[in-house]
Structures are given as C-alpha cells and as structure tokens.
Design a protein around this nucleic acid. Structure first.
Lengths: 350, 350
DNA sequence: ATGAAAGCGCTAACAA
DNA sequence: TTGTTAGCGCTTTCAT
C-alpha cells in the first residue's frame, strides 16, 4: 500500500476562499456558479493537480450506474450467445467497481419485439446503453430518445449511418470477406468455389453478410479471376434436408473442393462434409460457435474467422463505464476489431 | 442509476447487540474478541448476507493499492516494449478505480541488475506483483520474500516450476512451434527449411524458444518427415553482417524457400529478403513488433504468430486487482493465451 | 473484550 | 450564487 498525500476538494476550497459545495458544483458542471468562482476553481484544480477520489465519490453517491445491453435473443450456441456471455463476464468485473448491467433481448426477426424491448429499456432509465442494432429505423427512434435524456450509448457489431454514439466496436466486414478469400484459396488460384447460403424467408431483413461477400468477391476477382463461384441455398429450419441438397448439388459438381459460408452457421453442413470426406477439401466459415470449433478441431473445417464477440462487448461496456464514471471519452470512436484466424492448431486456447 | 439496499456492518452490529468496532475486528480477524461474540457475528453475516463495501473500506484506509510490475528493460520496438505499453494502458483503466502501478525494469542479461531491481521493488512494499521471470533462482528468492509478506504475485510470459503464484498468463510455447510448422508449410510437405537463429553470446542465458523449436520439429517430423532443416546463426549486434551471412548461405542452397525464426526478430532478415525477392517464398516469424508488422503488410513476411503482450499484461494486472480489492481468486491458475495468426490481410486492425 | 467517536473525501439537500 | 451540514460504510484510536 502507498501513502496518500492527496489533494482534496477541501484544499481547493480553501485555496480559492470558496466552499466545498461550490467546488463540487464546478467539478460536475452543475451550474449556479459565477464565472469568476468557476475560473478560480478551475485554476486551483490545475495548479494543485487535483484528482477526484473515486472511492469517496462512489460511496457518497450510494447508487450504482446501470448499463443496459440491447441484443438479439439467442438460441443456444449462436453468435449472440457468445456476446451475451461476454456481457456477463465484463459485468462481473465492472460490477466489482460498482456498475450494474442488465440484458434486454429482442427477437431479431420481429420489429415489434424490438420496439417493446426498447421501451422496457428506457423504463429502466439506464446510465448508458450498448446496442446491437438490427432495425435501422427503430434504432434511430431509440437513439433519439437517448439523446433527449442525455444517456450515452455505443454500438457493437454493426452501426447505423446516423451518428451521435459514444463509440462503435465491430468487425470490418468487407475486409473479413477479403481475408476469407485468402484463407479459402491458400493464396493459390482455384477453379471452383461453392458458396453455401442461408435462405432468408423474412424479407425486409437486412443481410449483414453482404459486405463480407463483396470483400470475398473482390479477392477472388483479383487473385482467381477465372474461378467459377456457385451458390447453394439451405434452410436452417429444415436441417434434415441439408444433406440431400448438398449431395444433389455435388453430384453435378464433383470437382469442387472449396466451400465457404459467410455467416456463423458453417456447422450446418458439417454432417454432410463428414459423410463425404475429402482430404484436399478446404472449408472456411465464420465465428467461434461451439459446433464450429469442434468441426475445426476435427479437421472438417479448415479455418474460421472469428472476432471474440465477448471482447467486443467488453470493450464497449468498458468505454461506457469510463464515460459514465469519469466522463472520459474513448480514444477512437470507430473501433474496428481484429479478425482472428482460427485453425485446428491454434483453436485450443481461444 | 439504481437504488442500493446494502447490508452494512451497522446492521450486523445491531443484530448482534455488539458494536461496529467488534464487528470490524472479527471481519478482519484482528483478535481480541470473545468466542461468543465472534460466533454471533459470523452467524449474522451469514444470515444477513453481508458484503463489505470496498469503497468505504478503501476510503477509510486512505491508501491505494500499488501493483508493481517486474519486466526486462526494453529497447525500442522490442517485445517487452509492447508489454510495457500494455501495462500503461491497463494502468490507466485500473488507475481509474484507484490502483497504482509501478514499473521495475531490469537488464535481462544481468543477474545483478535483476537482484537490485527486486530489492527496490520490495522497498516499494506493493500490494501485488506481476513478474516476467528470466532468472530461475533469483526469482525464487523474490517469491519467497513475497510469500513471507503475504503479497500476491502473478507470472507472465513464462513460469518457474515453483508454485504459489496467484496465476500465470502466457503463450503455450510448444504449441506455438507446432502451429508455426503448419503456417510455414501451408499444410503441404516441403523439402527444405531454413531456421535462422540468434547467436547468444552470454552463456547461462536460458533460451525461451527451446520449447517452441521442439514443437516445430515435431510438426515437421509428422508432416514432412523428409524435410531437410538447416540452421544459420546471425548476430543482432552486427546487423551489417547479416545480409552477407544469408547471401553466402543461399549461394549454396538456392532451392530453399521456407524460412522461419522462433524469436521476435524476424525483422532482422527483412533487408536481405527484400533485396532477393521470391514470390514463392514463405517466411514465418513471431510477435507483432512494428518492424515485423511492416514486413508482413508489404508481403515480405508471410505470417506472424503473436500473442498480444499487452493483453497478457492486462489480464495479469486485472487478476491481481480483483484479488487485492475483493479477494477474488482467478477462475484458472494457468492461463494459456490464444496464439494470433497474422497475415497481410488481417494485420491492419491488430 | 468491547464501545464510542472521529474521520476518510465526496455528494446533496437545505439554508442563506 | 454560495455556504453549511449530514451522511455514505468502514477503519482506527482511545476509553472503558
């Protein structure tokens, strides 16, 4: 432990001939202070090098800030489950320093669910919000209200065009597609690639993988201009049909041995891959879902590109906490996160 | 903000008919309390579910915990510089919650320097210590003293056989060598590999890359049993001679196009690589030093294996902080960190 | 062995 | 606009 020759508000009160109350007022910009006094206090703070004592402050306030997290409801072993677990992890560590967190989860296919969840969130009157946005317009409604109430918020995963958020944390989608091209081909030109895609039945649903696909296409154009890219659609709601679909397709294209999916569901085609082994096949997918990781470690999937959703959430919550407790702005507003390349040889400790 | 219905020592004092002072005594095992009282207090704590308020405690104590970090002195753009920057980053964020950090840096080639630095560290009387150990025996001397004083410590990077630390954070060295084999060969058998090594002039200096080399060898044995592995030694203190050494060697082995180094100095051979371009060459090294990253992005180096030294340090400091402030033990004692695969396509946001 | 009381530095309600 | 004051929950000293 270390001795403490701290400068306190008392010191700066004496120095300025004002009272602790006034000092506190300028410290927190609460208004009701004359220009002169304010300046004197500011000067004294500078000169004396005053630093607030967090413990005393938190103790005196006897309330904890609440951070609300708005994310899609998650099925087991989905991308959002990983994110949710990240929330709980950071909740624990910042809970220690006196901040509460609360999940608000909505059905990502249901606009109404999003709306009512937003309302609940606002009712909780949080000190800060982490948002994983899915519905452009409705999100704007939310952020406008947050602005009005002067509640800071950060986006994770994706970000609407509108601004005003404290920060954004997410993967560079286009680049992740580009990287994906390199991993799939191993840097060598290839003749054929199969892209397995999810049939989206609800229209109006924005496809978050569009940019990723674009990045992939550009990579292929530049490095394998003659490559034939084929698409096959599968339906995650009918897992039994997937094997049939793939078998039928491969009957006509037996020479194709490069397979890629741009969402987190590469595990859906693992059963087919396992029953049709091919040592020279390369398969690349995204995200470290349990099922994906298992396939990776068994050698069924060649590589995964992942982004530590828990890390993303942690950074988001941390940025928010620092702002709420200490009014500290994050170093950067847009934070593009590193893309992790996972293979069977480095998956173990991820 | 959220209301706070905390149980305080006052509550448990009333409940037991004793005073706050006595409650505090049993809370901290300070003695001078009768068996009976102690039992009553313990019971009340259980029943009421009392949890101490860290802020109040820290405030009343008027001292801040100090975390000391013991690492090798760093030249610019070295591995330990990255680690040091990690310290400063986490220092900032935990500084916010009221913990100080202090660097203690020693000459990693000088045992005496290590000893005197340890002494200084102990003089500072820290509440916790992060240690990057280089000298087995002397480290043991330090940890014994820390034990005596009941000061918790965690190891980073590598760990002595001895135990008693709160936690360890580091890269799995053997596995990193194995992974390195896969990246260098691209999973295909190869005929020749050149291993570039550093001439170590000071003997007695343990080589931290031994395990890594072992992992690499095993990979090659299993996947490229006929591969010829050659070694060339270079001296970082005589950078001018490196190009000559390599040129001479490659004169005799023009067919070799797989090159690897097991330490963080792959940048040393970049000048030679650049002046002797070969599009089919594969070069793999370790650690995200600036010079290495530049070579990666320019396509001179194929892959780097990195470990976010700053992250390692952050986790170490975090674990220590949680223990010091809240007596919370880390979830795992041995924490093997993920090995990041860096290529020119994902290096940008690392 | 136990209690009483004075603070730690800050906040917030109230008074002036 | 400013000052005063009563805590926040805990530690510590001094009595008893």
């Amino acid at each position: 432990m270390v001795q403490n020759g701290q400068i306190t508000i008392h010191d700066i009160a004496r120095r300025t001939g004002l009272s602790k109350g006034t000092v506190d007022r300028v410290l927190h910009d609460r208004g009701g202070v004359s220009r002169k006094s304010k300046e004197k206090v500011m000067a004294a703070i500078q000169e004396l090098g005053y630093e607030p004592n967090v413990y005393a402050s938190l103790l005196a306030k006897k309330e904890k800030p609440l951070i609300a997290v708005l994310i899609p409801k998650h099925e087991p072993d989905s991308f959002w489950e990983l994110a949710a677990s990240g929330i709980d992890k950071s909740a624990e560590s910042i809970g220690a320093i006196g901040v509460d967190t609360l999940h608000f989860e909505y059905d990502q296919y249901d606009l109404d669910s999003f709306r009512t969840t937003c309302a609940k969130l606002l009712d909780a009157n949080p000190s800060g919000v982490v948002i994983a946005p899915m519905f452009q317009e409705a999100t704007e409604g939310l952020t406008q209200e947050l602005h009005k109430r002067d509640i800071p918020y950060v986006f994770i995963d994706s970000k609407p065009e509108t601004d005003g958020c404290l920060a954004y944390f997410g993967m560079p989608l286009y680049k992740s597609g580009y990287l994906c091209g390199d991993l799939l081909t191993g840097g060598q030109p290839v003749q054929n690639v199969l892209i397995v895609r999810i049939r989206r039945d609800r229209y109006q649903q924005s496809d978050p993988t569009i940019n990723r696909r674009a990045g992939f296409m550009d990579y292929m154009l530049e490095h394998s201009p003659d490559c034939v890219l084929s698409n096959v659609f599968i339906d995650p709601n009918e897992p039994d049909k997937i094997e049939g679909t793939l078998s039928a397709w491969f009957e006509d294209h037996p020479q194709v041995r490069h397979i890629v999916m741009f969402n987190s569901r590469i595990h859906l085609i693992v059963p087919w891959l396992e029953s049709h082994p091919d040592p020279k096949r390369r398969v690349v997918g995204f995200d470290n879902l349990k099922a994906n990781m298992e396939a990776l470690q068994r050698g069924i999937v060649t590589s995964l590109i992942a982004q530590r959703p828990d890390e993303q959430v942690r950074l988001a919550i941390e940025a928010l906490t620092e702002f709420i407790l200490f009014r500290k702005l994050p170093a950067r507003k847009d934070n593009y996160m590193h893309m992790d390349i996972l293979t069977r040889y480095n998956a173990e400790y991820y």
